[in-house]
Design a binder for these strands. Structure first.
Length: 425
RNA sequence: GGAAGGGUGGCAGAGCGGCUGAAUGCACCGGUCUUGAAAACCGGCGAAGGUAACACUUCCGUGGGUUCAAAUCCCACCCCUUCCGCCA
């Protein structure tokens, strides 16, 4: 959620930062203009209600004193009966206006950081750097590689659950598990993360805290009969561990990594990546989450991104780092880097990790605050990134490790996790 | 799912219609004392909105209700603990 103070005091600046996302800030029916109008109404009603409340409090105290002293207070009692009715009516109105205002604020995305490049589509994203040598020879798509080796079974996945589900068998199942272990171990042992294990179901408040709700309910799997959802990413439960807490500045930065399954309805993705394992309704991911100070947010983003890159490098997978332009940065983020891994069958780079700084946007929504010594509490800055998406990593290994004889070479770093297996045949 | 108990400030824990935004202890901050520290003593110390600063308003799980007045009484819901049932 955007900062209310800043919304009023830096209205024009913030509007400009939002306009760079392609949002029309002059549309009177748009959230930006509506928020502005609702704020005025809300504040007026609130101040009217407060004036009357002050009167009621003052006289009620007087009544108490008079009664205590055995004096007659009937005049005040009658007068306050009337005031009390008015207060109640005004309070209700003010509360309603405040709720409407907040609801609209919740739908306004995070203003972009000034360093984010301009752009109108993903074509305007900027390549920052490349790593590794992309292979350019003809490589079959991973679904053929996996099916031929008998380790990916898309038909079984479809039978069990529907399209966009896959069954992994033998070496593929083990590879999935090996990747999970390898990634967690690397982040814990080499990058200093504290590992957490969290629920894969989150309630509405938690989903709202990180920004998935209220706007993106259609992307989530909702549980029948409960106000709870399957998590689309570990970011949700891990960040919200600190929901409604005040941390000490000395506790920051907090760095957590977590493995969870992730569930996405992919409602708007009909026809995209229908074959193979690139876009699944359920996939595994190891996620990196930072809670830090406002000052450190941007520099910590570089650090976090580096931790994700380290995994790709250790697996010897060619990749590039791109910075998303204004039009492509997600709702809650202020700045985002994507890591894209080379897929030889498609002769292009595909997203395998997304690392974002959220500034105080999530901290404000989720009520996660920190206090400098002797200072006032303020929202923490949050960051997160995939470290990495495991299913897509598996795809990348199958394709980049594919040999002419149909076998797949396993990256050295994973061989110990595979029981010494060097290649899948 | 059934029964009982409970949700109060960073933590622990009183309060159970007005003098309570909340005793007390711990933690924390400032001071006295001390070569220094500890102890002891003195003072301060919740959050949000609002203000130039005050004032003022709101917040004792959440939402309603009763009352001139609610942390305190009533209703509903949520969560936690214990016991029973079921179960990996």
């Amino acid at each position: 959620m955007i900062d209310r103070q800043a919304f009023r005091r830096s209205f024009d600046e913030m509007g400009k930062a939002l306009a760079r996302r392609g949002i029309d800030i002059t549309d009177p029916d748009g959230p930006w203009c509506r928020a502005s109008a609702l704020d005025t109404i809300q504040r007026k009603l609130k101040s009217e209600a407060e004036t009357l409340q002050a009167e009621r409090n003052r006289v009620s105290k007087l009544i108490g004193q008079k009664k205590g002293a055995g004096e007659d207070a009937s005049t005040e009692l009658v007068a306050m009966g009337e005031v009390s009715r008015k207060v109640k009516a005004l309070e209700t109105q003010a509360k309603k206006a405040e709720a409407e205002f907040t609801a609209v604020l919740m739908e306004i995305p995070n203003p972009l950081h000034e360093s984010v490049p301009d752009g109108t589509s993903e074509d305007d994203n900027i390549e920052i750097r490349c790593w590794g040598e992309p292979r350019t020879d003809a490589v079959p798509p991973h679904w053929d590689i996996g099916t031929d080796l008998g380790i990916l079974d898309f038909e079984a996945g479809a039978k069990l659950a529907g399209s966009r589900f896959t069954v992994l068998k033998g070496a593929a199942a083990r590879l999935e598990r090996a990747l999970m272990q390898f990634m967690l171990n690397t982040h814990v042992d080499e990058h200093g993360y504290e590992e957490v294990w969290v629920p894969a179901i989150a309630n509405r408040k938690t989903m709202t805290g990180t920004g998935q709700l209220p706007k993106f309910e259609d992307d989530l799997y909702k549980l029948e009969g409960e106000d709870a959802f399957l998590i689309p990413t570990a970011e949700v439960p891990v960040t919200n561990i600190y929901q409604d807490q005040i941390l000490s500045a000395a506790d920051l930065p907090k760095r957590h990594c977590a493995y969870t399954p992730c569930f996405r309805r992919e409602a708007g993705s009909a026809g995209r990546d229908v074959r193979g394992m690139i876009r699944q309704h359920q996939f595994d991911k190891v996620e990196l989450v930072h809670l830090t100070t406002v000052e450190r947010a941007l520099s910590d983003l570089e650090i976090l991104t580096g931790h994700a890159e380290a995994i790709l490098q250790a697996l010897d997978l060619p990749y590039r780092l791109i910075e998303l332009c204004g039009a492509d940065v997600g709702f809650s983020a202020q700045k985002t880097y994507d890591l894209e891994v080379w897929l030889p069958s498609q002769q292009c780079y595909r997203e395998i990790s997304s690392c974002s700084s959220f500034g105080q946007f999530q901290g404000r929504r989720a009520g996660i605050r920190y206090r400098e010594e002797g200072g006032k509490p303020q929202p923490v800055a949050t960051l997160n990134g995939s470290g990495l998406a495991i299913g897509r990593t598996l795809v990348a290994i199958l394709e980049n490790g594919w040999q002419q004889d149909g076998s797949v070479t396993i990256p050295k770093a994973l061989q110990a996790y595979m029981g010494g297996m060097q290649s899948i045949t």
